[in-house]
């Protein structure tokens, strides 16, 4: 079985996010990048499948400038077998459908049985790449998997629905599945893994050679959100705070 894990490199949650001079995106020169945290759960799920089944190959696929090889290497150190890097210099590209077409073109010939993705990226948060690829490559799709069970020619997925509901879905392979964060505990790479990763192959492809798709949507600008909410700060000693809360409940909101 061949599993592709799509991994994106994104700004870390503690990174500075200065807006660039055109107001178009963040100035990436002062950003610290990390592996997209939701993708780490997809990677762990692939590694768990590899450990509990025979003949499983886990291939990391990542698109972006040269810097994304760092997250591919990190995934290889954790136990993935090889990497595919789709070199995309135009880091301002943010159209998910174009991204999905390029990724699909890059991985089509690999004939993966399973494509795993995180539930969304922590940068643009479009949350659709895995499903788009599934449709483009005529795979079955499911999202928000909290449990996966591989059976002969199909996979059983426990999907998280809303409000504490779940559902089991059986999909024929090949399938593209997005993984809900928190379903497993992602491992750290071992020292042996880090050393071994240096010898593993990362195959580079150029995105623009893969397809020259037309962009259908664009980010016009980014800005810092303004809240226009009037907030009353309830101050005083504890008795004053409590009596003001009761007054609000009784006369302002009228819930008691």
């Amino acid at each position: 079985m061949k599993i592709a894990v799509l991994i994106k490199q994104v700004p870390g949650s503690e990174s500075a996010l200065p807006i660039d001079s055109e107001g178009y995106w963040v100035d990436e020169s002062s950003v610290t990048f990390v592996m997209n945290p939701p993708d780490n759960y997809a990677l762990e799920e692939a590694l768990l499948i590899k450990e509990s089944n025979d003949d499983v190959e886990v291939v990391i696929v990542s698109m972006g400038p040269l810097r994304v090889q760092k997250v591919i290497r990190e995934a290889l150190a954790k136990g993935a077998d090889r990497g595919i890097h789709i070199l995309e210099q135009d880091i301002t590209e943010k159209d998910p459908l174009v991204i999905a077409k390029r990724l699909s073109n890059a991985i089509k010939s690999e004939e993966f049985d399973l494509v795993l993705t995180g539930l969304q990226s922590d940068d643009t948060g479009m949350g659709q790449t895995g499903v788009l690829i599934g449709e483009i490559l005529k795979m079955s799709t499911a999202t928000l998997a909290v449990e996966t069970i591989i059976q002969e020619d199909h996979i059983r997925i426990k999907r998280e629905l809303e409000s504490g509901w779940f559902q089991w879905v059986q999909l024929s392979l090949p399938a593209s599945i997005s993984i809900q964060s928190g379903l497993n505990t992602p491992r750290y790479p071992s020292l042996k893994g880090i050393m071994g990763a240096k010898k593993k192959e990362i195959h580079s492809l150029s995105a623009t050679e893969l397809s020259k798709e037309e962009t259908l949507q664009k980010v016009n600008n980014v800005f810092v959100p303004q809240t226009n909410k009037q907030t009353e700060i309830i101050k005083g000693d504890i008795d004053q705070i409590v009596s003001r809360i009761i007054e609000i409940l009784r006369t302002d909101i009228k819930v008691i």
């Binding site: 700004p11 949650s13 996010l17 963040v26 948060g125 962009t215 949507q217 980010v219 980014v222 959100p225």
Partner: peptide
């Protein structure tokens, strides 16, 4: 308008 980067920024996105 859509939240990006863990809601630290908002982005304006349009279709063509």
């Amino acid at each position: 308008i859509k939240q990006v980067l863990n809601a630290k920024l908002n982005a304006t996105i349009s279709n063509l």
